[in-house]
């Protein structure tokens, strides 16, 4: 069956919708009824058929609309895509990784033909048919990282390894949970994570950095992270806070189920072969409370997680202001029954 792509928007009239199938495959991030920082790392790709973990780079019904939204954001603010000069090779590595993966995993949508460095790329959903020379930037309309990430859902950070640390030296960031590439570009791992509460003291970042430095080529990993967003907006950037920050105040007990979204990031980690850089794709999935509650296990669990969460985390994740209303709303779906372990829906 060919995939159907939604016509929808992530700003203005916010026509974004999840089909029932998209709700069922939503990467619900909680595997138990409470939340604390953990090193929830698994090998990637790999997961149930049809889940967003099955393939290296998930393509779903929102693909075309998300790429249009990225185009709008980039037109307004080109600094959302930056690559320091030494990162061009990592950009080619990323382009290869994404093209090869998509052509292998979605042959009905993407096709890649390679004859040495003469490459022919066909992206049917976006209507792209391009012949170019691999590793020759003059044969693409823009740099390799920008070229491929205008055709791939989610944000992308490319990390350069040196001095036993990782440096955020390139990225495409238009669907971020309130962080700025323009601010963070050139920072090392500890610098760009400085705003995260408590974690540094817990030694989380030392462990995480050690893990990342040990990621080898041919062996990639994933983890899930989450936050909450009012309205299905991809571009929740500090640059545009004035546009989306005030929307937090539009939540009422009547509309909270439809307007309050759980925002989940599927983060993956890849060692790139030629540059030895790390690619860090951050794919964003949105699902509102109404839709989450259609899966009884998720409704119960989300209620318990958000009710009992550490107040500092509620603040950091930006939903403290609406926490009471959210918990109240979700309580109608929590009958106190036990929930099964793991993230997938029951039945």
């Amino acid at each position: 069956m060919t995939m159907q792509f939604n016509e929808e928007t992530f700003r203005g009239d916010y026509t974004f919708r999840n089909s029932p199938a998209a709700v069922r495959r939503f990467p619900f991030p909680f595997d138990r009824d409470s939340y604390a920082y953990s090193v929830n790392i698994e090998q990637h790709p790999g997961g149930p058929k049809g889940s967003p973990f099955e393939f290296a780079f998930d393509v779903d019904e929102h693909y075309v609309a998300e790429m249009k939204d990225r185009e709008i954001t980039l037109a307004e603010d080109p600094m959302r895509c930056q690559s320091l000069p030494h990162m061009e090779l990592a950009g080619w590595d990323l382009l290869e990784l994404i093209m090869v993966s998509k052509a292998r995993d979605y042959p009905e949508l993407f096709k890649l033909t390679r004859d040495g460095n003469a490459w022919h790329w066909i992206n049917k959903p976006l209507g792209i048919d391009k012949k170019f020379t691999f590793l020759d930037p003059t044969t693409l309309p823009c740099g390799p990282m920008e070229y491929i990430t205008r055709q791939a859902q989610g944000d992308f950070a490319l990390l350069h390894e040196r001095e036993g640390n990782l440096w955020l030296d390139a990225g495409m960031v238009t669907s971020q949970a309130d962080w700025s590439l323009d601010f963070d570009v050139g920072m090392n791992f500890f610098e760009w994570h400085a705003p995260v509460p408590k974690a540094r003291k817990m030694g989380v970042f030392d462990k995480a950095l050690k893990f990342l430095l040990a990621v080898t080529q041919e062996q990639s990993y994933r983890r899930l992270n989450w936050t909450m967003t009012v309205n299905p907006r991809l571009d929740t950037s500090p640059e545009n806070y004035h546009k989306w920050g005030p929307e937090k105040r539009t939540i009422t007990p009547e509309n909270v189920g439809a307007k309050q979204f759980l925002r989940v990031e599927l983060q993956t980690f890849w060692r790139l072969p030629r540059s030895n850089a790390l690619a860090f794709p951050i794919r964003c999935y949105l699902c509102n409370l109404e839709d989450i509650a259609t899966q009884p296990k998720w409704g119960r669990r989300l209620h318990r997680v958000l009710r009992d969460i550490d107040p500092d985390l509620a603040e950091y994740k930006g939903f403290a202001v609406n926490q009471k209303m959210i918990v109240e709303y979700l309580s109608q779906y929590d009958d106190g029954a036990p929930t099964s372990p793991g993230i997938f829906p029951e039945d």
Partner: peptide, 10 residues
Amino acid sequence: SPANLFQLDL
């Protein structure tokens, strides 16, 4: 598979 502890600083 290859790993690198001595990469060039590009």
